[in-house]
Simulated assay, not measured.
Amino acid sequence: MSGPGRRGRPDGSKGSPLFGRKPIEERLAERRAQLPPLKEGEHFEHGPAKFIFIFLIVFVVVAHLIGLVVLMALDLN
């Protein structure tokens, strides 16, 4: 990312010139590569997404049951 007004590192490498660390993308990729492979069907990667998914399914089922009870109570024939 060199350009007018920006100085690159003397060795031409990327990373933080202040701390000498690798970019966050490289550090995340290395950490991810050390993890064991995921087991098929035993892992839901995003906990909050799992919570929302289950909540929505339960909400739809309960809403349908309430609607059924209301329609049965009205007895529209």
Rank of each mutant, 00 (worst) to 15 (best):
G8V: 12
R9A: 06
R7L: 08
K50M: 11
L38W: 01
H43T: 04
L71A: 04
G3Q: 03
A33V: 03
G8E: 13
E40W: 07
R27H: 14
L28G: 11
E25I: 04
P10R: 04
G3D: 05
A29E: 11
S16Y: 15
H46R: 07
L35P: 00
E42L: 06
G12I: 00
V60W: 05
G3F: 01
G5I: 01
F55Q: 12
I66C: 09
L68N: 08
M72V: 05
V62R: 04
G5E: 05
H43S: 02
K50D: 10
D75R: 07
L35F: 03
G15S: 06
P4N: 00
R21Y: 11
V70L: 11
V60E: 01
A73V: 10
H43Y: 09
G47Q: 05
R32K: 09
S16M: 14
V69Q: 06
M1Y: 03
R27V: 01
K14T: 02
R21E: 12
V69R: 04
L56Q: 15
E45S: 01
V70K: 06
V60M: 13
Q34K: 13
A49Y: 07
L18R: 13
G47L: 06
V61Q: 10
A29F: 06
M72G: 02
F55D: 10
D11A: 00
R32C: 06
G8N: 11
E42Q: 04
E42G: 04
V61F: 12
V69Y: 10
P10A: 08
L28M: 14
L35I: 00
S2I: 13
F19I: 10
G20Q: 14
I57C: 13
G5F: 06
H46Q: 09
I57L: 15
F51W: 08
A63W: 10
A33N: 05
R6L: 05
F53N: 15
I52T: 10
F51R: 11
A29D: 10
M72L: 05
L76T: 09
E42H: 05
K14F: 07
S16G: 15
L65S: 11
E45C: 00
P4H: 00
G67E: 10
I66H: 04
G20C: 12
G20N: 14
E45K: 01
S2V: 11
P36T: 03
E42R: 02
A33M: 03
P36C: 05
H46L: 07
P17D: 14
L76Q: 08
P37H: 08
V60K: 03
L71C: 03
L38H: 02
I57N: 12
I52V: 14
P37L: 10
L38R: 03
H64L: 14
P36D: 06
E26Q: 15
K39T: 04
R27Q: 15
L35H: 02
A49T: 09
I52L: 14
A63N: 07
P37A: 05
L35C: 02
I54G: 07
Q34T: 14
K22W: 08
P4W: 00
R31K: 07
L56T: 12
A63S: 12
G15A: 07
V61I: 15
F44D: 04
Q34H: 11
K39M: 02
E40V: 02
